[in-house]
Amino acid sequence: PAIHKNRRQVGRLFADKLGVEYTEDPQVLTKIARRTIRGKFLTADAGLSGANFAAAASGSRVLFTNEGNGRTVTTVPPLHIAILSLEKMIPSLADLPTFIRLLPRSATGQSITSYVSVITGTRKPGEATGAKELHIVLLDNGRAEILSGECREILKCIRCGACMNVCPVYRTVGGHSYGWTYPGPMGIVLTTLLTGMAKSHPLVDASTLCGACDEVCPVRIPLVDLVLKLRERRVREGFSRPMEKRGMRVFGKVAASPSLFSAGQFLSRTFWPLVRAFGGKDVAGRLPGPAKVPFHRRVP
């Protein structure tokens, strides 16, 4: 998907890489893409795909697409290689209807995607399309270890993207900022678990813990709780910054004492003009100032 690029960027990309005349017309760009890609599909020796779900009982792979590319890559080349991570497995095709309704409605608001492809086995005698040879690769890559740990619920994720749509951090910084395959709230958890805390520990701060992701998740993954568990693990494993540790220790003492907390509120209101004066435009423009009257004094 190239939703992050506009038609002018796509037009320049096609002109540079494909040697075609520059155009911004979406219909013309679509025809150029179709003509170029379809030729590659028809001459490819092998097609490589994943799957949204896979039925253990029949070995069927299920693909949800709106473009039709999934159906083409799995049926036109003579060899089909399907790579599936372990959590994509469901018991049988009898369990599929629930996900057919759940995934597109949570992802794009559709009742159903344009194409739902259920592929079982190889080409049968008399069939015009379908791979003649099939290889299915079941990918663990640390998922069995996740299943036995305290964050196992992240493996229920169906990759709908609903948590990304509502996440204030993701909507501000975009998907590329997460630095790996999975962005958004689910990406914070899954990326950290798959790549290790040593590599991904800064990522667990990419959440405001507002809980919007918990509310929209169709499979009820407690994403906020999982992020908090990872933050606790980061501290236990020694990846917290020394300044952060000292700051939280001081804040804990202040927050536990009503008198110190009130004094802190008074000082913040007193010195806020200095923060606005010397904190730079980002601080002055985006950071809200302290309330003139604390909340606990407004409520009888």
Rank of each mutant, 00 (worst) to 15 (best):
P1F: 01
P1C: 00
R12A: 01
R12I: 00
F14V: 00
K17L: 06
V20P: 02
T30Q: 12
I37P: 06
I37M: 14
R38Y: 14
T43Q: 15
L48T: 01
S49F: 00
A51N: 11
N52V: 06
R71L: 10
T74D: 05
T75C: 04
T75L: 14
P77E: 06
H80S: 11
L86W: 05
P91A: 03
S92G: 05
R101D: 14
T113H: 07
Y115R: 06
I119W: 08
I119K: 02
K132W: 03
E133I: 03
I136Q: 05
V137T: 07
E153V: 09
I154T: 12
I158Y: 12
R159A: 13
G161I: 08
A162E: 10
M164G: 09
V169A: 08
R171E: 15
R171C: 10
V173R: 06
S177L: 07
T181F: 02
T181R: 05
G187L: 08
V189S: 13
L190P: 07
L193D: 04
T195K: 10
T195A: 09
T195I: 08
G196Q: 03
M197A: 02
M197T: 04
A198L: 08
A198D: 11
P202H: 06
A206L: 11
L209P: 01
C210S: 13
D214G: 02
P222V: 08
V224M: 09
L226G: 02
V235E: 12
R246H: 03
R249S: 10
V250L: 14
V254K: 03
S262I: 06
L267V: 12
W272D: 10
L274K: 14
R276G: 15
G279Q: 08
V283A: 10
V283G: 04
G289C: 11
A291Y: 09
A291D: 12
R297K: 13
P300E: 00
